[in-house]
Each structure stands twice: as C-alpha cells, then as structure tokens.
C-alpha cells in the first residue's frame, strides 16, 4: 500500500487558490457541522424523556430565528459563489503568452502534440513557470483532461475544441487522468505530466526526433490534399486566400460574421458548406473521413502560421491566439 496523503500536491498557480477556497469551505462546514451535531447531542441529553406521560410546552417558531438562519447562511454562500466564480474565470482565460499545445483524446489514450512537431502519447513534457494552453478534441467519445496536482479539469469532446491552461510551479511528475467515463479501459486512459526546468525542457525539445514542426507537416498535408489548387497565397484562386486569415473576422455569404479561430477552421475543413465566405461559391468538398483530428490540427496550425496578428487572448479585437512562432 502506498503512503497516505490528505491533500494532493500543489504544482500550479491555480492549485493554491483552489486549496484556499477549500480551507474556507472547510472552516464554514466544520463550524456548522459541530454546531448542529453539538446542539442535537446537547438537546437529546438535556431534554431526554423522563416519564412516559411527559408533555412539553409547544413552541411554534420564531420569525427572528428563521430570518437569521436564512440570511446568515445565504451571505456565506454568496462568498463561496463569488470566490468559486473568480477562480473559474481565471481558469478559463489563458495568459496571452501561453505556450500552445494540442491534445487529441481517443479510446483509450492521450495524444499530445507540440508545435515543434514532438508527439507524445500519455506523456506531456512542459517547462516550469511558463503558462501552457492546450487545445483539445476527441476522436470518439467524451473524455476529460484532469491533472489533480494542478486542480484543473476540462471535458474533451468529439466535434469541438475545448481549451485548458495551467502554469506549473514545481518540477516533477504528475498524474494525468481521464475523468469522464469513456468505456472499457477508461481507468487505463492515464498518463504523466513532466514539469521540467526550462533549460532541461529546451534540451528535451531539441533532442527529440521531430519530423518538422506541426505547421510544416500541416503544409505538406495542405499540398498533399491539393488544398493549394484552390486556396492560393494571393486572391487569384477560386477559394478565399488563407494568408492572414487567422484571427480575422470573416464576412459570410447570406450575412453574418464569424471569427476565424481554430473551431471555425476545423469546421470549414470538415463541413465546408456550414459557413461559406461572402463572394465565393460553395464548391469545396468535405474532408470528413479523409483527415484525422490530428491532421486537422496540423492544417489549423499551418493556416495560423500564414500570418496572424499577435494580440492578447480575451480581447474583443480580432487578435485571437498569438502566432505560434517563438
């Protein structure tokens, strides 16, 4: 049997924040639990039945008490609400300088891809002290990406991108779990997050035998699938040019606008008729079934590399995710 711990390791910037909220919740709960258990125990002994015919005076209630024990707990819960919500918002908004990585979940493994081209399965190497943002999708059912030591979790869905971010604060090796039940080997869909000193991480990154960056393999795919027959670098093709597209707001045929983010590009590859760019014909065939989710990520990364304006995440300007070039 392993050692017995009561709290998981704190290895990200979020972890102490969640733990502080835990302490607050524990203090409030222990107070009320002790008060209620204590009151029951005291009353039960103090007012135990002494004779079978005993008839205590009825007490019907008291408005002041009812108001007090509604309003005070409500006030306390609003502290919990606000505190929990503020952590949630922090968790939802990655810093602009975050390192970008991709995750594809499938029954029953995690595939993790670095922009530099390194591919890992059930292992992820990240540098210490640097925010890391993961863009995630699933090839089959719903999974959930969970790192207890970082106190973060996010469902990973088929047909959709979800994101999660963390900033590791302690070198070491941490559990990665799938937290959403996904079939027979659900409990085998686990891995390790390796947090390395930045220099060590650089060595690891350059030491791996990558076949080129994610964007460059995307470029090969782009040519291999003959996308470049229609999507030219200038506006001479039958289809819109993809240069400088990422992060821009696109005018759609039939009105409406959409921000060209990862999800939009993914959709345009797999369901090209869904959102047709204004001024173009819906002539593009679907690539559903021809490309894997990982291929789509490469293509997305290639299109991103075709020029995008860096702007911090979360701003309403069409900046989007910063350029992958470092």
């Amino acid at each position: 049997m392993g050692e017995l711990r009561l709290l998981p390791e704190q290895a990200s910037t979020i972890a102490p924040e969640v733990d502080h909220l835990l302490y607050f919740l524990l203090v409030v709960s222990v107070f009320f639990t002790v008060a209620i258990f204590g009151a029951i125990f005291y009353f039960a002994v103090r007012y135990r039945r002494r004779s079978e015919q005993e008839l205590p005076n009825p007490v019907h209630g008291g408005l002041t008490l009812e108001i007090l024990w509604s309003v005070i707990p409500f006030g306390l819960t609003m502290v919990m609400f606000t505190w929990g919500a503020s952590i949630y918002f922090t968790e939802a908004r990655p810093p602009g300088d975050a390192l970008s990585l991709y995750v594809v979940g499938k029954q029953w493994m995690w595939k993790l891809e670095h922009l530099e081209g390194q591919r890992e399965i059930n292992e992820l190497h990240v540098p210490l002290g640097r925010a890391v943002k993961l863009t995630m999708t699933s090839e089959d059912v719903i999974h959930s990406f969970f790192i207890p030591a970082f106190r973060i979790k996010q469902d990973v869905l088929p047909g959709k991108y979800s994101t999660i971010w963390f900033k590791p604060t302690k070198p070491g090796r941490y559990h990665l779990f799938c937290a959403e039940y996904c079939g027979a080997r659900h409990s085998g869909m686990i891995g390790w997050i390796h947090v390395m000193e930045p220099q060590e991480y650089q060595n690891w990154l350059t030491g791996g035998a990558a076949e080129g960056t994610l964007a460059s393999s995307g470029e090969k795919l782009f040519e291999g699938l003959a996308c470049n027959n229609c999507h030219h670098a200038d506006s001479s093709g039958r289809c819109p040019t993809l240069v400088g597209l990422f992060g821009k707001t696109v005018q759609l045929a039939g009105g409406g606008m959409v921000k060209a983010d990862e999800a939009y590009i993914r959709e345009s590859i797999l369901q090209p008729q869904a959102k047709v760019v204004a001024g173009f014909q819906p002539i593009m065939p679907t690539f559903q079934g021809l490309v894997t989710e990982e291929d789509v990520l490469r293509l997305v990364e290639y299109i991103k590399s075709l020029g995008a304006k860096a702007a911090p995440e979360g701003t309403p300007t069409p900046g989007g995710v910063p350029a992958p070039k470092r």
Binding site: I14, E17, V18, L21, L22, L25, V28, S29, F32, T33, I36, F37, I40, T77, M80, F81, W83, G84, A85, S86, I87, Y88, T90, E91, S144, F146, P148, R151, I152, K153, Q154, A179, E180
Partner: peptide
C-alpha cells in the same frame, strides 16, 4: 440530520465553480 448536513454542506463545495472543476467526476 447529521449526515444530510454533511451531504448538504459538501453540496456548497461542489456548487463553487472553481472548486468543482477540480472535484467533479471524482
């Protein structure tokens, strides 16, 4: 009353967004 109190109070834990992210599905 005792056990429902504990169950109810831990309900406050999981209703807190940032806390639930860590403990949901655990």
């Amino acid at each position: 009353i005792g056990l429902f109190t504990i169950g109810g109070l831990t309900g406050l834990f999981v209703a807190a967004l940032g806390f639930d992210v860590h403990v949901t599905d655990t």
